[in-house]
């Protein structure tokens, strides 16, 4: 069943008692073997969606099928098909990695001989063999995340949920985890549903991205398609003299709509694309404005977020003030 199914979500709503509507009628379709990136600021509804799809939180309305099973009525079957590494590696600091493996493999009902083989295989895979007998309390953040991932894979799930798997990790650990996730999909055909607030993570890893804001999906597609939708690059210019700031803004406004930029610079999205750059330089020259710096930005997923919500992804969470931990 799982081989033919990914994740199907229709009009999913999750409302907290006396709280916000954390997920507000989202539709999702994740194909088997796909890496789906769920991108949004803190409090957007990412974790609530994951908790509902992993059967840890009941939905309020709508429907969701994971691996072909209904999360509202067939939780047991859903759980047998999924693995999950939720926000904050949930590990027991007093146990070693090997003891965690033993616990997890037993609870998943693996046979005695399978338990040991599978445990060692996964510890090897995430590079924790040497540290396997040390208590997890002394692990680094990256080691904890790797163990968390290995534990989620114990029962060979067909769908893997990763809730902000690299938050708080250093760049090296982050890249190592990305490689492992990519390998899982490539070699084992695992479907991955990944939430993140990092643009580069979604960009680097996801086949398709859904952008969620205030419980609603505001854009969806491949990272490239989303950026192509915005289509146009922006130009950001720092004047040589501070006094020219307003004059610079006036000149640039002729070439496109203004976009947020650092305080000393002015930026606009070029209506005519990159080819208009020469024209911009000539216009500035004509107006007698000398330029200190000029940068051309290709569109990013942040631009997509900005375009769809009117806000930048960075800092959008605090504006919303939702409760990501509760959902």
């Amino acid at each position: 069943m799982s081989g033919r199914h990914g994740i199907e979500v229709v009009e999913l709503v999750r409302e907290f008692p006396k709280g916000p509507r954390a997920v507000d009628g989202i539709d999702l379709h994740v194909a088997p073997g796909e890496i789906y990136g769920f991108l949004g600021p803190n409090g957007a509804g990412k974790s609530t969606t994951v908790l509902v799809l992993t059967t840890l939180l009941p939905l309020t309305s709508g429907s969701a099928r994971v691996a072909g099973y209904d999360v509202a009525t067939q939780g047991r079957y859903v759980r047998a098909e999924i693995g999950a590494a939720l926000q904050e590696a949930a590990l027991d600091p007093l146990l070693s990695a090997r003891e965690h493996m033993r616990l997890q493999t037993t609870l998943h009902g693996l046979s005695r001989s399978d338990r040991k083989v599978r445990g060692e295989e996964l510890l090897e895979r995430v590079g924790l063999v040497e540290a396997a007998d040390r208590r997890v309390g002394g692990y680094s953040g990256g080691m904890k995340r790797r163990l968390d991932l290995a534990l989620a894979l114990v029962h060979r799930p067909s769908i893997l949920f990763l809730d902000e798997p690299t938050t708080g990790l250093d760049p090296q650990s982050r890249t190592a985890l990305w490689d492992e996730v990519a390998r899982l999909t490539r070699e084992d055909g695992v479907t991955v549903f990944l939430t993140t607030q990092y643009l580069e993570e979604a960009d680097a890893l996801a086949d398709r991205v859904g952008i969620i804001d205030r419980g609603r999906i505001v854009a969806e597609g491949t990272p490239q398609a989303l950026k192509d939708e915005i289509g146009r690059p922006s130009v950001e210019i720092v004047p040589a003299q501070d006094g020219d700031h307003e004059a610079l803004a006036a000149v640039l406004s002729r070439f496109g709509e203004s976009v947020p930029a650092l305080s000393q610079s002015v930026a606009v999205r070029l209506r005519g694309g990159e080819s208009e750059l020469a024209e911009v330089v000539r216009a500035l020259d004509g107006a007698g404005i000398s330029v200190s710096q000029l940068r051309l930005h290709a569109p990013t997923l942040d631009d997509v977020f900005l375009e769809k919500t009117g806000r930048s992804l960075e800092g959008a969470g605090s504006e919303h003030g939702g409760d990501e931990s509760a959902g």
């Binding site: 992993t54 047991r76 759980r79 999950a84 949930a90 027991d92 609870l107």
Partner: peptide
């Protein structure tokens, strides 16, 4: 276990 999410990990097993 509840606060750290460990309970959720156990809850995802049978």
């Amino acid at each position: 276990d509840i606060q750290t999410g460990f309970m959720n990990r156990l809850a995802l097993t049978p």
